[in-house]
Design a protein around this nucleic acid. Sequence first.
DNA 1: ATGCGCGACCTTTTT
DNA 2: GGTCGCGCAT
Length: 699
Amino acid sequence: MSKTILEGLNPQQKEAILHNGGPLLILAGAGSGKTRVITHKFAYLAKKLSPNSILALTFTNKAADEMKARIAALTKKDLRNSWIGTFHSQCNKILRKEIGVLGYNRDFSIYDEDDQCNLIRHILKEFKIYEALYKGILSRISSLKSASITPEEFLSKGDGFGFEDRLARVYIRYQDELKRCNAVDLDDLIMLTTKIFEEHPDILKKYQQRFQYILIDEFQDTNTAQYKLIKLLASSHKNICVVGDDDQSIYGFRGANINNILNFEKDFPTAKVIKLEQNYRSTQNILHVSGCIIKNNPKRKAKTLWSERKGGEKVLQCWFGTEEEEAKYIAKLIKGLYLKGMYDYNDFAILYRINLQSRVLEDTLRHEGLPYRIVGGVSFYHRKEIKDIIAYMRLALNRDDNVSLRRIINCPPRGIGDSTLSKLEQEAKKKSISLFAAIKNVIKSGGVTSSAREKLEGFLSIIDKISSGKYKDAADMLSKIYTKTGYSEFINDERAENVQELIASAEGKDIKEFVDRVSLITSVDDVDNSNAISLMTLHSAKGLEFPVVFIAGVEEGVLPYFKAKGTEEIAEERRLLYVGMTRAKDLLWLTGAKRRKLYAKVQEQEPSRFLNDIPEESCQKIEKILKDTPYTAARKQRIKTFKPAAAYSVGARVRHPKWGIGVVRDCYGEGDDQKITVNFPEIGIKRLALKFANLERIR
DNA sequence: ATGCGCGACCTTTTT
DNA sequence: GGTCGCGCAT
């Protein structure tokens, strides 16, 4: 057992896994096999401990799912009751049990950013603060919460005058309103859990005993509130292992506190520190150049990544007249490399700092007939029609949820306008009751015109019908909502399709679990394996890797973005570039344009200051468009590093459970990391991990 | 209740 | 350049 767990690992990785109890900080450089170490460490721990007594926290659902799948494959243990998940989902789990002590009801709603905005705007109207400020105010409140500062603390810090004081009052009111709605926002999931632990030592003790070991992934992304929470949980046994890379901290603007990683050793003086510096992804050259850039950051835990893939192609720098030329050249290069058979479309990624850069790139790729996909972007669950339908569901489960009620009381339109609504608001305020209860009161007391009363009765009976109905699953409930509310007649075809998709995704799911999932998920985990070039922001690229990476717009004002002024902000921009560069396995291009259209005006652009840190000899600068694409070294590199494994030979036929029969195009890697590339007719070329692919060899 | 014109504003965004 | 929100007009 422990043989398989430690097989194929380097000494540092082994040390990290075998380290016995006590605080451990694993500084895992880009591409150093971090996920592997975490999952194997979990498996190792699970030999002695029940898997359900290990708390393993990630930041994304995707990372959590992947971790679960890999641990399940490794340990063959039942993980249905495990505590592997995101910070938010695991806190939600705790709150659903314990929130009673704070005076909330267990059926609380979870508000996302959209709901938060609605609530803040509602409050600002009442406070007579210019409503357009809501975004700024919400972000201030959110950063207070992520820094674990309560409304009362913030108010007591202020001088009692001016904007800060008013902000404090809005914050207090906001928190009150949430409670009145029996709702928590995403920051509350962390903050309220912490609050319970602080105020109820017995509850804290229960969870301290339950979690014998704590594992945290992407530790550089934790905010102060999250760190406070895990310090509480780890304080008795100090069996805590955090894994992260300070050089990849790029979410400071969302409250992530890089000092958490820098201070871990101070907070846990007996902490062992292990550095994972062997990179299994990029060529030595790419690592060298990205290392030259990141080493200029102040306050970092120095790491020197190295790779067995010695040498490699030089990093290519290219400077163009305009962003159109930049895009065109990138497209031509991709086409050239593709036609030479070196790479597939999904081997390429084009990364950029700001979303608006994607437009020219998209236009050009389309024009050149190259397939692409945008990664990230607007979330499915953020769409109006989806949020509306979910709001009905939420209101049926939690009648105090005023935000959801306001959202749907007149959607689809049923003639309940502002005047009726403000009567309801008044009544609710006067009697300190929810809007839903206010509707009942107003109907009884005859506080509205008879036509308004009829309409309110109609709305009431819809909600009553929804909440008294018996449903076999979440899909059943959603589809009844969709028809009974009149929503289905109200929307256009495209939106109707989205609703159908939502209903389909709820098939067989428990209603409450489904609502939670929707609130805690951002994007649909669509497994888009289509053979296409990936376009995304540098932020979205974190955690991914591609054989060929282009970083576009490496210019002053774009990267670093012009709004980044202070040293820490510049340092974060530098890390952003570093994250982008370390995504590349074989080839890396840094491009820029002399003139770029930004927000309707053409700007003269200078090369990014970060480029000055790149040593001449590791870089190739190209001023004009070349006829030949430089790829020979990369090809040699590939052949050397990826020796064909014996498992499948190129040209062999295999069957995949989902995609049918295909032809093996490539097979490489060793041990658990064996990868296979298969061309499935109709579906296209897929790159698969041999271990999980479930392939069947056929003759 | 809806439609339109005007002005302000622009990042990144795991949950 | 394009979006979003507001206020005013119907």
